[in-house]
Design a protein around this nucleic acid. Structure first.
Lengths: 198, 198
DNA sequence: CGTACCATTGATCAGGTTCAATGCTCGTGG
DNA sequence: CCACGAGCATTGAACCTGATCAATGGTACG
């Protein structure tokens, strides 16, 4: 029993003790090394993951064989902690995503089957699943707004404000592709901004 | 009873006759004129809408007071037929979206309260709600991928391939902001492409 | 018939990309 | 423990694409 993680997760999920303990009992602990993969393109994602320690990234490989980062994960806010290819998980289709450890990591997995059983068990858990899907939807929509309305420079500034911790964990190379730009452009944006804010 | 719409909706939702009839009985028919609004920024979205005839758009107003189109709606595929601000609908928060008729429209609304009652009624309907949320999530995620991985020109080409009908309904001015570019750029992209494909 | 809106086009500009080179840091093996 | 190599951030130069400002012509609707 990992008390800090238990407490953290419970406070993030804001659940009563009883259902939370039931959920927690399903979790399977795992550790992996830096650069190891939790999920590779083509596999079916059979888990929902929860970061305990370390950081991971979810990325695609685009048609030019470039890696494009979609999300980063670490033990922080609820939307950061969870990692999965929700599409593959829901539909049992081969994933187009990769999930890889950026440093040595420990995390917990909820296996697909256990999750299914839980959801079929009671409307409480079904509602819980719906809420999770809603959260996933809302964060994807937020990402669309970001990409549609803001220039790369403004996206960088917004990220700096909304999630400054991310800059301590994630290399600029990876952040650049998350922002949809090249590392060179990110470097120049940083320079531009630091000059303007001197 | 609007038989064509009834049949269309049933085939899109792929539901059994009985639950479908229950759902259908909740629908409230409405007509509006071109340029009228179904939802305005600041209001709480209390419906899920289903297009019968005509077309609508969902748009934001960004910080430069420009309209940015987020989605278009018409009687076609399931993801096109549905219109709502799902975020506002789910959370009962004021909407940041506007939904406006691009031409004279007829549509059906599922009122929020009826939807809630339905979802609380049985796990069948709760599951249905979850599936809807999943669809919303998947289409938002697809939009993120589009914006992250493809240039405006490639986005235009992809849209041309995946949804050519949209070009018959929607003006270039509106399509441009959907693609995240100016009308002038769209015009030039079209020119570029038509030359290359002669 | 006139007006308002839209698509197109030209000219200029700004920001991001690409290719290439440099210096730095960190981890590894001799 | 030091030396080397790999990967990363930075910078420069040339380029490309989309943005902006402005003007024109077409079309639909009152």
């Amino acid at each position: 029993m990992n008390a800090p993680f238990y407490d953290k997760l419970q406070s993030l999920l804001q659940m009563e003790k009883e259902p939370f303990t039931e959920l927690y009992s399903l979790l399977q602990y795992q550790e992996i090394k830096r650069n190891d993969f939790v999920l590779k393109e083509g596999e079916i994602c059979k888990f929902i993951g929860l970061v305990d320690n370390g950081s991971l990234r979810t990325f695609y490989i685009n048609e030019n064989a470039e890696e494009v980062n979609f999300l980063f994960h670490f033990n922080q806010k609820i939307e950061d902690i969870v990692f999965t290819d929700y599409e593959s998980f829901l539909l049992s289709t081969p994933s187009k995503l990769n999930i890889q450890a950026l440093e040595n990591c420990s995390f917990y997995l909820i296996p697909h089957q256990d999750w299914q059983n839980l959801c079929n068990k009671s409307s409480y858990w079904q509602m819980f699943a719906t809420k999770m899907t809603e959260k996933a939807y809302l964060s994807a929509k937020k990402r669309v707004e970001d990409l549609l309305y803001y220039s790369p420079e403004n996206r960088y500034i917004k990220l700096l404000q909304s999630n400054p911790q991310i800059f301590q964990k994630i290399s600029q190379r990876h952040l650049a592709s998350y922002l949809g730009i090249t590392p060179q452009s990110l470097s120049r944006i940083r320079k531009r901004i630091s000059i303007n804010y001197l």
